[in-house]
């Protein structure tokens, strides 16, 4: 299977890449891990005249704390994300998403930035990132802007990023005390699977054993973009966490989602599974919130 012809550029730094995209605009596509872009090009759904490789851009690599925020470079691979002990410790739900993305071979190529920019409704990383309240930085020749990730996706394959903008940073706030998160993916097999439904949940308690202060539930694969289950979130706030509350809230999430029928599963099955997965993700989040509290005293 041949790739269509294109011209290839590999700029040396982010500034040079931004200048390049400012000139080429829609005719160019940035290349990160290539696991989506090259497949789309082989299938003929995309045929950019220019491919701009981001592989030499050191600014887009690495992860760590800067200015009290946890920064993830968009060219960090899913494998690097899954292996990071810091991510596992502080952002377990994101780590789980990365661990289950594609296959080991894909994880060594695919990047977190690519997973966001591809904007697939069933992508593994957006639900957890939105649940953690992630922000992304978009950079172009003229400057940069910060966008809340929950406002980032516009539709399947579509984001707010302009053709001249490069995703240059993913930022997460450190999880607040007494908080936890969970991520559950449902597929028919364990590897190389596109989720039928995936759910991420985040809760923060007012104090140990206290009521829920803040909650975010993000549903994937059941709408054109990952969606917040806002009525479910509202029903959690101010309440004492527990099995019966989670069961009630999960039903609210199922009511709220907008799944479609397709060859992977029917809308009614997806809706039923949203309830099951939301409950599981909330339980995971609650477990982690309690564990995190115990760890503080050790």
């Amino acid at each position: 299977m041949l790739l269509p012809k294109f011209q290839y550029y590999a700029p040396e730094n982010l500034r040079e890449a931004c200048e390049m995209l400012a000139g080429l605009k829609e005719k160019a596509r940035p290349l990160a891990g290539g696991t989506d872009l090259l497949v789309n090009m082989k299938q003929g759904s995309l045929s950019p005249r220019y491919v701009v490789s981001l592989s030499k851009l050191k600014e887009l690599k690495g992860l760590g704390v800067k200015d009290k925020l946890f920064h993830i470079g968009p060219c960090v691979t899913a494998a690097e994300l899954a292996e990071s002990s810091r991510v596992k410790h502080d952002f377990a739900a994101l780590s789980m998403g990365a661990e289950n993305l594609g296959s080991p071979l894909i994880r060594n190529l695919a990047t977190i930035g690519g997973n966001l920019m591809s904007a697939r409704p069933a992508a593994d990383l957006p639900p957890s990132l939105i649940a953690y309240g992630a922000k992304v930085v978009l950079k172009n020749k003229g400057g940069q802007r910060s966008v809340d990730l929950k406002e980032f996706f516009k539709g399947p394959g579509q984001t707010v990023a302009g053709p001249d903008e490069i995703l240059s940073q993913i930022q997460l706030e450190n999880p607040p005390p007494y908080s936890g998160a969970g991520y559950v993916k449902l597929g028919k097999r364990k590897a190389l699977e596109i989720s039928l439904v995936n759910v991420a949940a985040f809760i923060a308690l007012e104090r140990p054993n206290g009521a829920i202060r803040d909650a975010r539930i993000v549903l994937g694969s059941v709408a054109p973009v990952p969606m917040r289950a806002e009525s479910a979130e509202k029903a959690l706030k101010g309440e004492k966490p527990g099995e019966s509350l989670f069961a009630k809230v999960s039903q609210a999430a199922a009511k709220e989602c907008k799944p479609i029928d397709d060859f992977r599963g029917s809308a009614s099955y997806r809706r039923a599974m949203v309830a099951v997965l939301t409950k599981r993700a909330l339980n995971m989040a609650f477990d982690e919130a309690r564990e995190r509290e115990l760890r503080r005293w050790k």
Partner: peptide
């Protein structure tokens, strides 16, 4: 498959196994 699904094109690139059908030669 040439789509990154089957793994028959696996090579080890800088110490990591990858689908070589999803890597450009120039990369």
């Amino acid at each position: 498959c040439e789509m990154g699904e089957c793994g028959s094109c696996t090579v080890i690139l800088d110490g990591k196994p990858v689908n070589s059908c999803l890597v450009l030669a120039v990369q």
